[in-house]
Design a protein around this nucleic acid. Structure first.
Length: 271
DNA sequence: CATTGTCCCTGGAAGC
DNA sequence: TGCTTCCAGGGACAAT
């Protein structure tokens, strides 16, 4: 499941592949991912445009084009972008062809992924909250986000309108690192806990990027490889395995309809 | 406004 | 072995 570190990894890899290339064609096998535009409008808007640069906002990948428009892609759960795959990829939904004969293949088993072609990116990403790796995301900023909210802290971290890019895996990892129970009301965190969580969020995301993302399910980087971040997860998707800190088996509960992994001992429910 | 619930989608796992 | 049912989950949207 691509979250911030996975999308950042994809962006970095695709930058090297795509920079300066011009779209020569688009093959839409499944129209579902293409939002707002007809397949014809989508193709016509891309063909002939050169790629200026790539960026990321939350879990969205933004590909800037020479005419000022932007191709914005969200991979949701199982979307993947593969650069010049050697073999035919299963679940291919769409293919982009470039002027030099290279191609970018979009696969998505569950067909939840979306793509947009817009002039103004804020149309799509304008509602997103603060970037957690931006310097403006301080412990104080986090405190401001949490102070009035009664929802479980885990749910608050997953709300993209508060903080952009944290998904299920990294929320669990950050809460473990800060020793906070996922069900604690967001507003109940002490200043010390808020500072710990702020640092933990930044650390787990940076570590995820260093390890080129986590491959819990279908995530692959554009070269087809899997990341290694999941190998160093403490609790995420590790129910029953020993907590790296105390050895207690990792527990799984459901918080806001999402499976949540944590250590009942290290993340004891206080207050 | 804040919060909760439903839906989308499909392969793989679990159950019978 | 083979069929059926359940589950995962980001985010849009509706309901409360």
């Amino acid at each position: 499941m691509p979250e911030l570190p996975e999308v950042e990894t994809i962006k970095n890899a695709l930058e090297r592949c795509l920079a300066g290339r011009t779209f020569a064609g688009v093959r839409i096998i499944d129209t579902r991912p293409v939002q707002r535009l007809s397949p014809e409008q989508f193709c016509n808007g891309l063909v002939g445009r050169r790629i200026i640069g790539l960026s990321r906002r939350g879990k969205y990948l933004i590909i800037g084009l020479s005419d000022g428009s932007n191709l914005i892609i969200h991979l949701r759960m199982t979307g993947a972008l593969l650069w010049n795959p050697a073999e035919e990829e299963p679940f291919t939904r769409l293919e982009f062809f470039f002027d030099d004969g290279s191609r970018l293949v979009y696969t998505d088993v569950r067909r939840f992924g979306t793509m947009y072609l817009v002039t103004d990116p804020t149309e799509i990403v304008g509602r997103l909250g603060i970037e957690p790796l931006n310097g403006r995301f301080t412990a104080k900023a986090l405190a401001g986000i949490l102070k009035s909210r009664t929802i479980p802290i885990k749910s608050a971290l997953l709300n993209q309108e508060h903080i952009a890019g944290i998904g299920n895996m990294y929320a669990d990892e950050a809460l473990f690192k800060a020793k906070i129970h996922p069900l604690r009301p967001a507003k109940s965190l002490t200043p010390a806990e808020t500072r710990a969580l702020h640092g933990a969020i930044r650390e787990v995301l940076k570590k995820g990027i260093r390890n080129h993302g986590a491959s819990i399910r279908n995530y692959r980087s554009p070269d087809g490889k899997t990341g290694t971040a999941h190998e160093e997860f403490a609790v995420a998707h590790r129910d029953g395995q020993p907590c790296p800190a105390c050895g207690t088996p990792v527990a799984r509960i459901v918080v806001g309809q999402r499976g949540s992994y944590f250590c009942q001992r290290c993340q004891h429910y206080r207050k």
